[in-house]
Design a protein around this nucleic acid. Structure first.
Lengths: 146, 146
DNA sequence: TTGTTAGTGGTGAAAAGTGGTGAAATATGT
DNA sequence: ACATATTTCACCACTTTTCACCACTAACAA
């Protein structure tokens, strides 16, 4: 399971390294695509195909009604890590996530999210101020399940 | 059952030792994550998985409410103790809990909380001065905010 | 005291992160 | 189509960080 968060540098040309802790689980062939809240998603090839094929499991392509599937599919790039575990974030994706010098790689279960460092810190503050709401929402989710 | 509290030093680089009394119950593989009121939580791997189930996170799917995933999974780090029972507290977590030279490890049933010593002492004083209020609010089933 | 366990500092080899480079691939202009 | 310019990317080399140990000191019980 992908958990925790790690900081890595992004070069002017968008080159960055996947944190070592995530490499074994993501493997060398990875899909990178646009995520929600101005993030990027990194998903292993296996997990990607699983998501696309498993119709009943609320695949990642069905998001919100208004959001076209091509948001994710149309912005997905296959990448292969070099021997140092690095790759280049496509320019359009870098712009979408407003990634500058420092990026934060966040493990969120089955995927890794990439955040611009400044935005991640802001988001952390927001989360910290709303812990109770978040926890409550989890509690109510649970009641809905059998 | 994890109970009592113990003081341990934290090095400049964030290295500290789990109090010996807690080691057997936590075992060597531990999860450290953000807790409430600027504390950190230490829980055994087993307990972690149990908690994930009860809280009903769905890490295998890109779920709709993304905040809980990011808060809980994104701030959880797996750690392994060395032969002296020590580990390094990730920088971002140290900052969250404002941990400086001295840390207090507090056993709270199924988890251990880590406090900055100064903050722990303040909190103890607050508790001492407000025991009656707290007990009363518990009796009337209300929440008390510090 | 003496033996045993817990806590703490230090260290060096290994791992991870980062910058640079040149051949190969791709794009561009004529 | 060909020549030239530009970009890409696989690899090398260097720097920084991490972490598994060793060794000493403090606390404590017999």
């Amino acid at each position: 399971m992908l958990i925790g968060n790690y900081n890595n540098r992004v070069s002017l040309k968008g080159r960055t390294a996947v944190p070592a802790k995530f490499r074994s689980e993501l493997s060398k062939k990875i899909i990178i695509t646009k995520g929600y809240e101005k993030t990027l998603f990194l998903i292993s090839e296996d997990e990607w195909e699983k998501q696309l094929n498993t119709v009943n499991l609320q695949p990642l392509v069905i998001s919100q009604p208004r959001e076209p599937d091509r948001f994710i599919l149309g912005n997905a790039f296959p990448i292969i890590l070099d021997d140092q575990g690095r790759f280049v974030i496509p320019k359009s994706l870098r712009q979408h996530a407003q990634i500058k010098e420092q990026a934060v790689f966040v493990g969120v279960g089955n995927r890794v999210e990439i955040w611009d460092q400044a935005r991640w810190q802001e988001y952390q503050q927001y989360l910290g101020e709303n812990v109770e709401k978040i926890v409550n929402s989890l509690a109510s989710n649970q009641e809905l399940k059998p």
